[in-house]
Design a binder for these strands. Sequence first.
DNA 1: TGTTAACACGAAACCGTTTTCGTTAAATTT
DNA 2: AAATTTAACGAAAACGGTTTCGTGTTAACA
Lengths: 340, 340
Amino acid sequence: MKQKVTIKTIAKELGVSTSTVSKALKDSHEISKETKEKIQAYANHYNYKPNNLALQLRNQKTKLIGVIVPKIVHHFFSTIIKGIEEGASEKGYRIMVCFSDESHTKEVENLKVLSNGSVDGLIVSIANETLESKSIKHFQDLVSEEIPLVLLDRVLDEITCDKVVVDDFGAGYKATKHLLNTGCKRIAIITTPEYVNVGTHRRQGYEKALLERKITVDKKLIVEIDEKQNIKEQIRPVFDNGIDAIFAVNEIYAAKSIRIAKEKSIRIPEELSVVGFTDGLISEYATPSITTIAQHGLTMGKQAVEALINRIENESEKYEAKTIVISSDLKLRESTKPSS
Amino acid sequence: MKQKVTIKTIAKELGVSTSTVSKALKDSHEISKETKEKIQAYANHYNYKPNNLALQLRNQKTKLIGVIVPKIVHHFFSTIIKGIEEGASEKGYRIMVCFSDESHTKEVENLKVLSNGSVDGLIVSIANETLESKSIKHFQDLVSEEIPLVLLDRVLDEITCDKVVVDDFGAGYKATKHLLNTGCKRIAIITTPEYVNVGTHRRQGYEKALLERKITVDKKLIVEIDEKQNIKEQIRPVFDNGIDAIFAVNEIYAAKSIRIAKEKSIRIPEELSVVGFTDGLISEYATPSITTIAQHGLTMGKQAVEALINRIENESEKYEAKTIVISSDLKLRESTKPSS
DNA sequence: TGTTAACACGAAACCGTTTTCGTTAAATTT
DNA sequence: AAATTTAACGAAAACGGTTTCGTGTTAACA
């Protein structure tokens, strides 16, 4: 890289002190008109730009927000990031995005680096591995250092900080209820392993809706997917239990279920209704298009960043951790029967 | 935020100088065993972490790569970002992601901020607005400051720097040729306005394939989509021209085309073959699944970051701008007829 | 003519770290 | 006993800015 022009070089070239240059560039009244003009002209001509690092070090703030998400090639998470970026941008902040890849180690490492003064605050969605192991020392360190932190979607109760979550319980309830209302009786649920709390909440909503109708929860209709195995093969057996509906906790599971149904020539939604989760492109463009719970990732991102910046900029106020619950709603499409 | 423990505070508490602390923490031989142990114990206990900003300022490098892409809720771009992150991560770099939202103004602003010493180099995919207006002063400034820059996918010849692009021409050719080989005769192309050079190249490939078969290019079969208007309505009229195949330059256009075909009860691929671009989730999960040109975003991201880091770390070598062309290949699925 | 105010600028500290180059005292060599 | 090493540490500069607090000069005023 070329030798950058700094305040020092300008000062030397023009035979003034660095303080004069600094003041002149800020149009301070302390400096005479001629000197200002001379300095500004020089700075302009040589395309002087103040060094960000120096400013951040001096001001003890970076106007930077660290974001750690499990993955990015994923409609929900990329939408969240977009929301965060938009919210941050409005308030003059920029974002630094890192990925944990669902790995605990990478999450810890990212957290360490970002919390070394690189950012003013952090927004993170916890990796599956961490969720499973519940080893959260890295978060507790953060909290005890009082570095502003907001947890998003994938949260853990044990961590005391602001949180933004989907009303997963309500969403599971809504989805199941809709299936029941359109005449379905044996509803299978394709969900995640129990440690992924979002999956668990959705399943509890599902169970509540069933119990309200005095339908007992049939364990044979509950499929917990292990993502390391072939997903389709794990779903397939549940079709042998005389089901008339499937509630999938994400759109991939929903799409795979529909594939299986087609292979078996089961008509959708006449013989089998399907509800997915996450309002991504698949659901919109699949045939039949898939009825889903829309998650409002954009809103979540914006809320998270708003809470975070609020925390960053009002350090003095004593603060209490709050949880923002974003309600999600059902987007009716072709994979379920019209409600009567 | 809590008062951070710095080298200074340690020095003061322990009655030594900052230099001693710094050396002790690096396990320097200059410091006696007892002093080292004392300092390290203290640092450990109070969870001392060196301040990144200070280090970056001192070392004159940030180990940070700036990434500017037009959007993120997009399979291709998010895949690229993943590729960049993986490649960067391997070499000990982190990434700072910004979005231009296809806006020239935002692109300029992002470029300005990032090039103020915040990052060691930049990878950018140019915004549509910039592509259209060709106002590239911000890039030229970057180049003249010799800040390492790699352009990705959306490039402009006028900018002298390393580039990583898809073989769009070859891809368009391959796609069209495949349609011709499977018996299609009247092939429509759904493309972008002319200023988006990737669209143009794909179209030129399309035209070459046709001309090879002595088929004259029929302008009525070329649809240039204006994304500000309703896409489906812009595609619909082309169905009245007796077509038997559609080559869409992205998967949204392909999916919309298939929708229209279904509404008109046109069977795919028997009556209409469809080829898309970008191997996203839609193509995989749609029914019928869509034959596409797979773009290898991951590879592109990795190549870009490799070129960039190479440039960053070998400043001395005189360097010549090179362009890396990533060839893309056809992924056969259900929306085209089996080739004979 | 002496005092004061305004003007224009510079010196120096600071943000947190590293690193070079002393410096002092003890240990070793002659 | 004098000279030289060596061990263990500190002072200070440097990275690139900002900001507080002088300070010297000139002009205005009593």
